[in-house]
Write a protein that binds this DNA or RNA. Sequence first.
DNA 1: TATATTTAAGACAAAGATGTCTTAATTAAC
DNA 2: GTTAATTAAGACATCTTTGTCTTAAATATA
Lengths: 145, 145
Amino acid sequence: MVLSKSSHYALRAALYIARHPESGYVSIKEITRELDLSFHFTTKLLQRLTQARLLLSCQGPKGGVRLARPPKNINLRQIVEAIEGPELFTGCLLGLNQCSDDHPCPVHRSWTGVRQRVTNLFEKTTLAQLVEPSHKNKLRLTNLE
Amino acid sequence: MVLSKSSHYALRAALYIARHPESGYVSIKEITRELDLSFHFTTKLLQRLTQARLLLSCQGPKGGVRLARPPKNINLRQIVEAIEGPELFTGCLLGLNQCSDDHPCPVHRSWTGVRQRVTNLFEKTTLAQLVEPSHKNKLRLTNLE
DNA sequence: TATATTTAAGACAAAGATGTCTTAATTAAC
DNA sequence: GTTAATTAAGACATCTTTGTCTTAAATATA
Ligand code: FES
Ligand code: FES
């Protein structure tokens, strides 16, 4: 499992939010209805994104959440790290408590190479890229059937 | 989290086993003592590797486990897949129930590219490579301190 | 054969992740 | 101000993963 379910949900919600006009708030009810997610659980995930300054939130009628800055300035690593921490980008493939060139495990050299590519993907990919019109054939954010 | 704790333990145990002479059995007691793992929990993980025909086991005095074939014929994907299934190598980054070119999610194209590199690492890396002498400076299989 | 050693297997406990429910706090609109 | 709508927060339930303990089965050795 590369990402936790929590990260899955947070990323899908963030993409849904990014598809909306930047100025307005989107209600979490709408998000969870459209993406078929648990409302309360997702609310807490989005709270973490708000605390991480990735989202702004507003209570009350017409309230909801919105991106805290233009979608080109929010990347996937920021979202994942706000939800599950940095281990994916820094951890040892064998789960050892430190990953360092000084005390490498047997897979260290190979893994850090691939891990850097994973990290690049998460850092270079912004919400803006994933919602631009040329991606209109990749709008899927929900399970099939 | 790229791999589960179970996969971490199984990989570390497999590497420990691969360092031993091919002909003899290694006791799980020794493995878990040296790697500081839970004996009973690790026993069940290694049972799964045995059921997946990656290991042979033998009960009784002088019993234990050994590789079922030469270490150059066992790769990391086989171990991980025996423990946690194929999702790492086939799953959607957003956790959607199907990952396919026909119904791609927004990150599908980027992710499948990186995922292929991850898969290559796990498939090309064999136990033999990880225990060969040139790796003697990468013997670490336990936590520091 | 008897004994000691070891894996196999199952019950169960503990911890963590995921999901549900209720109440509080905030805010827009009337 | 009152009301309705919405996020914030916490209690709690459920499920999965991880870890422990006990018993059974197998096997080498004497
Ligand atoms: S120490 Fe294991 S991957 Fe770096
Ligand atoms: S459909 Fe999401 S990664 Fe392939």
